[in-house]
């Protein structure tokens, strides 16, 4: 295999590459946040109108610890009763599985083609 001679990259071109990479990175984190699609927020499925420790499902030991932490039944209401919603659709699960598998297949396939070039140039053609 003929030796591949890479082009020399100028300073401006290097700067452009860095800006592109940073923009993509910041976008991957912040776009879901800006679109309010990030995270699994908790909700209170069954609020209690006049909360007491008993109504919040807390026994004496649990109530004592909350009081030691500075909470009252009112201030601890949302903390104690809020729950995640783990319901999901079969379609969403299948989509995630397909995306993950497709990603790794893509990586391995492209990498293998590039790797054969590397080995051929490093060790010579067989």
């Amino acid at each position: 295999m003929a030796h591949y001679k890479p082009p020399v990259q100028g300073k401006l071109s290097q700067l452009v590459d860095v800006i592109v990479l940073v923009a993509l990175t910041v976008g991957a984190l912040f776009v879901p946040l800006w679109l309010h699609m990030a995270g699994s927020s908790k909700t209170v499925p069954a609020p209690v109108a006049s909360p007491t420790w008993e109504a919040l499902g807390q026994n004496a030991a649990q109530a004592k610890q909350y009081e030691a932490l500075g909470y009252t039944p009112e201030s601890a209401h949302d903390l104690i009763l809020s729950r995640f919603d783990y319901s999901f659709t079969f379609g969403a699960l299948v989509t995630m599985i397909v995306v993950i598998i497709a990603y790794y297949v893509l990586m391995l396939k492209f990498s293998e083609a590039e790797y054969r070039d590397v080995i051929a140039e490093k060790f010579g053609e067989k």
Partner: peptide, 25 residues
């Protein structure tokens, strides 16, 4: 991956989308 999917599936897909785009780049 399934655990992350339970609540943070959007980030998971967004992140893999990011890695696919930078891979093409």
């Amino acid at each position: 991956f399934f655990a992350v999917f339970l609540g943070y599936g959007t980030q998971l897909v967004a992140m893999i989308g990011f890695y696919i785009v930078v891979s093409l780049w």
